[in-house]
Amino acid sequence: MTQMEDNLTATAEPGGEELWKNGSPNLRLLQEIDVRLSVEVGSAQLRIRDLLNLNEGSVVELDRQAGAPLDVFANGTLIAKGEVVTVGGRFGVRVTDIVAPGERVKDI
């Protein structure tokens, strides 16, 4: 196992978060990599004919209940649940629950 793999493995263990915060040399390099963070309110499956019939004012019912936690993804991997907030006139997300690292790996 390489030094980087050792460090990454350590972060999945209890207390391993400290490696990210304190920053071993290899992990400090990773901290500068950009990731795409996205939030999913819900989804819907439509037939193409229904999609083509959408127009201004159309409503598409999503598969999630109002007030249910939102899914927060990092590069397409579910990492957390959250709720919508506004920050200076913009939408934001307040993280309410972090997905366990073992659960994140199952999605890959």
Rank of each mutant, 00 (worst) to 15 (best):
N7H: 09
E17Y: 07
L19F: 03
L46Y: 01
D50E: 15
R64S: 09
D71S: 14
G16H: 06
S43Y: 00
V60Y: 13
V39W: 02
I79Y: 02
L37R: 07
V59L: 10
R49N: 09
D63R: 02
L70E: 06
I33M: 10
S58R: 03
G67N: 15
R104E: 12
R28I: 00
K106R: 15
P69E: 10
D107F: 00
G88R: 14
F73Y: 13
W20G: 06
E32D: 08
N7F: 04
L51I: 01
A68K: 01
A10M: 12
A100Y: 12
G16I: 05
R64C: 02
P101C: 11
L62M: 13
G57H: 06
S38F: 01
V41N: 01
K81H: 15
L29F: 00
S38E: 10
T2V: 04
K81S: 11
A10R: 11
A10V: 00
E103H: 08
K81N: 12
R94P: 05
R90L: 12
D34H: 10
G67S: 10
Q45T: 09
L37G: 09
P101F: 11
L46G: 02
E13T: 07
V85W: 11
D107N: 13
G76H: 07
L54H: 10
A80T: 07
D71R: 05
E56A: 13
E103Y: 01
P14M: 09
T77M: 08
G16Y: 10
N7G: 04
D71P: 00
K106D: 12
E83C: 12
A74F: 15
M1I: 07
S38H: 05
T86C: 11
E17R: 05
T86M: 12
E13W: 04
D63A: 04
A68F: 03
V85Q: 15
E40N: 08
